[in-house]
Nucleic acid binder design. Structure first.
Lengths: 231, 231
DNA sequence: CTATTTATCTGGACAGTGTCAAGATTAGGT
DNA sequence: ACCTAATCTTGACACTGTCCAGATAAATAG
């Protein structure tokens, strides 16, 4: 049925036919796959994740409604691919932030947090798609692997912050702290995108200032391994 | 195929209709509104928020697809009402947690956080609906007011934690801290519901243990006004 | 260079969706 | 008892995602 051929064929335009760059729009037009992805990203940017429609995407790509099925299995397949690409950029953004932090573990986490929120605020639809339930197929191609890559960037910085070297096991407290930091950053992004911070006027001005208020507040008690065993 | 006509052969209603609790199934059956709400809650619990369908709800209530429109305007109206009721329970749960904390501000926030996450984990679909974008009409009846009620429960505890009395203005730092706490708790709930903590085995065991790890971690530096201006 | 296989894409169909307008039915107030 | 307003049905319309049989083009043989 929908056996989506996941053939790993590298047919990514090494060369192009010298002629005919334009007018023939009949049947195969070569870059449908990319065009569909671009159309999807544009569509959800305009109308939100729920405003997505396979047919509308096909329409924008100038193609029949059944065409996308040959590239991605079904609608969820297309959305999963878009999410995957999102996670790719997302992971890169986190890694770039991490690099900005230099050798100071706290700074690394700080910059990663900034990058996390910035990505979400600048790509609302994509971010919501990436962390949505049900819209993507969790078993899609290497979605799981790519999204885990982002996670590992954070994990690595946490490990550094806790003074762990290469191969020691992460202690439970470490994961607890990881979850705390992740939760806070992610929650901020999610609430901000949901317009939940638009009520009190004093909050509104703070949305762009996460770097100056929330993050330091979170990271204030970071560097030392949280082994205080409070309560 | 399965166009199962839900014919109501129950036309036994004989003569006397004096008693009100006697349910007759023809046309007006009195409690359609409540039945639609209940059906919606059950449906999204079973199939997730995206699995919602107005027609399916109508079907379950034994009523025509156009019937709900007379009670709630459209599909979003029904979902908004369900979200509103969710926020009602939610606010109560937060308030109950707050009360559990007694007179200790830190304990109040701690219990509220526990209540927040517990509500989300026990009512995943409802929680996701409440904090979804686009599924509800933000201008619905008093949705805004009710949801703000929950917010005010948190705000009050934050104020207490910062030693503010009745009518003083909340300082910007206060809102910053409120957002931090809210973000962390909310983010945890959202990530947990998204299955994001199901990767590393050491995390999985922690989902139920937020009360023992994450929350204290967040609240460790709570009581004093966060004016340290770090970094 | 021709023939055949394989990858793409179309067109039409089907079941499902939300919503609207017109009409049937009933409840309630005067 | 009438009349009005609320409630619900019926049928329609424009959508949606997905499947199927075929058309078309490109790739790969032979």
């Amino acid at each position: 049925m929908n056996s989506v051929k996941i053939k790993r064929v590298e047919k990514v335009s090494p060369r192009k036919k010298a002629v005919k760059p334009a007018p023939k729009r009949a049947y195969h037009h070569g870059d449908l796959r990319e065009k569909l992805i671009a159309a999807t990203e544009a569509l959800i940017r305009e109308r939100g994740v729920d405003g997505f429609s396979l047919r509308e995407v096909a329409r924008r790509a100038g193609v029949s409604p059944a065409a996308p099925a040959h590239h991605f299995g079904d609608a969820r397949g297309l959305l999963s691919e878009v999410a995957l690409l999102g996670f790719q950029e997302f992971g890169d953004a986190l890694a770039a932030g991490d690099a900005l932090g230099g050798s100071d573990p706290a700074a690394r986490l700080y910059e990663q947090g900034k990058a996390y929120v910035n990505f979400a605020l600048k790509n609302p639809a994509r971010f919501q798609l990436m962390f949505s339930n049900g819209k993507c197929d969790p078993a899609y191609k290497n979605l799981d692997e790519i999204s885990n890559r982002s996670f590992r960037v954070l994990e690595k910085a946490i490990r550094a912050a806790m003074g762990l070297t290469g191969s020691d096991e992460m202690p439970p407290d470490g994961y607890g702290y990881l979850m705390a930091v992740w939760s806070c950053v992610h929650g901020f992004a999610h609430l901000a995108l949901g317009g939940q911070f638009d009520g009190p006027a004093q909050m509104r001005g703070m949305k762009g200032e996460i770097s100056k208020t929330i993050l330091p507040l979170m990271l204030a008690h970071l560097p030392e391994p949280p082994a205080q065993k409070t309560l």
